[in-house]
Amino acid sequence: MTRQHGQIGQPVAVAEGLSKTFGTVTAVDSVSFEVRPGRIVGLLGRNGAGKTTTLRMLLGLTAPSAGRATVFGHPYDELPHAAHRVGVSMDGIGALPGVSGRRDLTIWAKTLGLSSRRVDEVLERVGLGDRADRKIKGYSTGMRQRHALASALLADPELLVLDEPATGLDPDGIRWLRTFLRSLADEGRTVLISSHLLAEVEQTVDDVLIIQRSLRYSGTLAELTDNGAVRLEDRFFSLVGNGNESGVGAHA
C-alpha cells in the first residue's frame, strides 16, 4: 500500500514552544519542531531528557505548561478520527491486564470498529501470529514491543508515534524493527520514533530531533552527520554535552 497525502509538504505534527514543568522541575523547555510527511523522524535524547513527555503532550495525554502541539493541524483531542489516523506505542500505555495478545487487540479493534481479520493481519505483520493466544503477562520484552506495535498498527494509521520501540529487543528483533519501520515509511506513513539508541537510530531515520529538556537540533540526519562523514553519536554529544544546558543552542 502506498499512501497519497492530500497535503503534500504540510507538516504531520507540529510542536510550538512546548514546555512542561512538574512542580519546580522543568521536564521540557520550549520545544518547537515539525514532522514532515512520509519521513521516519527520530526524537533523540538521554533518559529523562523529556522525549516521552514531549510525545505525551503531542498526543494530549499530558497538558503542556506552555505552548501548543498539533497533529494533522489539530490538537489531538480535536482531531477528527484521531484513533484511525494516529497509531501509538508508548511507554506507560499497557495492555489490558490478564488477557491474551489476541484478546487485547480484539477488544481495541472492536472499539475502533475493525474486524477480527484486521487483528490477524497485524499479528502476522509483527510476527506474533503463532503466539498471540498466550497471556501478555507471559510475553518477553521483545514480544511486548511487537504487541505494542501491533496495537499501533490496528487502524492502519497515517502517523505512527513509537516511544522507545527498540528497548528490550535482541539483535534479531532490532534488525527486524529496522526493516519494519522502513517498510512503514515506504507505504507512505510517517513515523515519529523516540530512542536513546543512537547507533540504531542512525541506520533507520531520515530526520532527527535532539532534545535535552530543550531542543538542540531539528533537521535531516544527512545534514547533522555531513552525509555520514561524522557519526551521529559524536554530533549528539557535541549538542547535548554533559547535561549542562548552558551554551548549547538549538538549530532551526
Binding site: L59, G60, L61, Y76, A82, A83, V86, V88, M90, G92, I93, G94, A95, L96, P97, W108, T111, L112, S151
Partner: peptide, 13 residues
C-alpha cells in the same frame, strides 16, 4: 494500574 487508560483516552475520541 495497567496503563491501558492511555490507550482508552487515545481511542475514545
Amino acid at each position: 494500574q495497567s496503563g491501558a487508560i492511555g490507550r482508552s483516552v487515545l481511542l475514545s475520541g
